[in-house]
């Protein structure tokens, strides 16, 4: 008993590990406060509310009622559910093929250039500075099956016009083109920064060993930028799976649901189908779980890959 009392007294005087940690990092926590408050209000709180909402039904007047998994059943039973996921996955794969390889290639070319580097970097980055809505509206004219720019160009080289957004076979790839163009600048700039960190001696050594351009890219550039490449892969998958602006502004999910994506279907539940926020939240939660699972796998693979 005495021993126990002594122990309690000792604990009362010795600051806990949490207390010590807080005291030691007080200034840092102070600086973090504003950022944490922003995250809490604009990211975590909506996420928690969405989680709660996905198990509720609400008319936004009376208190919400708990409906268990009903919203998830509504979403899964929706005939558009499968189409939306398939389109989203197809868009993601296509967007990765274009949006991952093209900026990396452009970054390598820009890195090798000796003249007009600043100008060309500006030109490549320019689309990022345009508001997405402006870019998308511009592409609406480019894709016009009548006097649109793309069909005029095809006409010049003797290729018959395409329906672009108006055909099930070309609508999704048209959206990929828009997305790639809009995001090209950011990706290129990040790859360029990574490329410039590669020590020049590595290339010199490779050249002395008789390595050509492709071998230098394969054995020097790619291994040296691997971390950035993996990070960008994850970020791009997370971003492209949430594609919304392109179908919302250009196709409204058509033709024949060929461009209906998960994010656009969420929007329809919440704002088109008479305010079914619960179903929208349920679908949002599903998408978040898929993305989290993917990110977790990616991070684990990265960790295993490190020396």
């Amino acid at each position: 008993m005495l021993i126990a009392d002594a122990g309690t007294r000792r604990r009362a005087h010795v600051p806990s590990r949490l207390g010590r940690s807080i005291r030691r990092n007080l200034t840092a926590y102070g600086f973090l406060c504003a950022a944490l408050a922003c995250f809490a209000v604009f990211a975590w709180y909506p996420m928690v509310r969405t989680f709660i909402l996905s198990f509720q039904q609400t008319n936004l007047i009376d208190p919400p009622t708990w409906v268990g998994l009903d919203n998830f059943r509504t979403v899964v039973d929706d005939p558009a559910f499968g189409e939306a996921w398939l389109n989203t996955l197809e868009f993601t794969v296509l967007a990765l093929l274009c949006g991952y390889v093209v900026p990396f290639g452009i970054a390598i070319v820009l890195n090798e250039l000796r003249h007009a580097r600043a100008y060309l970097r500006f030109v490549v980055y320019l689309p990022v500075m345009l508001p997405p809505i402006v870019s998308v509206l511009m592409f609406r004219w480019f894709f016009d099956p009548g006097p649109g720019l793309f069909n005029q160009i095809l006409g010049v080289v003797g290729i018959p016009p395409l329906a672009w957004l108006d055909s099930t076979s070309t609508a999704l790839i048209s959206l990929v083109i828009v997305s790639t163009w809009m995001n090209l600048g950011s990706g290129t700039l990040i790859y360029l920064a990574a490329l410039q960190n590669i020590p020049g001696e590595l290339y010199e050594a490779a050249e002395l060993d008789g390595a050509g351009v492709w071998r230098r890219i394969r054995h020097v550039t790619i291994p040296q930028t691997k971390l950035i490449l993996l990070l960008m892969l994850m970020l791009q998958i997370v971003a492209t799976m949430q594609v919304f602006i392109e179908p919302f502004m250009l196709t409204l999910g058509g033709p024949e649901n060929a461009t209906l994506t998960v994010a656009y279907l969420m929007y329809q539940y919440a704002f088109v189908y008479g305010g079914n926020y619960g179903a929208g939240g349920a679908l949002g939660l599903m998408l978040m779980i898929v993305l989290l699972a993917f990110a977790a796998v990616q991070l684990r693979l990265n960790r295993q890959d490190r020396p």
């Binding site: 055909s167 099930t168 058509g254 033709p255 024949e256 649901n257």
Partner: peptide, 14 residues
């Protein structure tokens, strides 16, 4: 309407 959009866009695009 969302379901019937599919039929409407099909006859006008295919």
């Amino acid at each position: 309407y969302a379901i019937l959009d599919v039929a409407m866009s099909a006859v006008l695009s295919r």
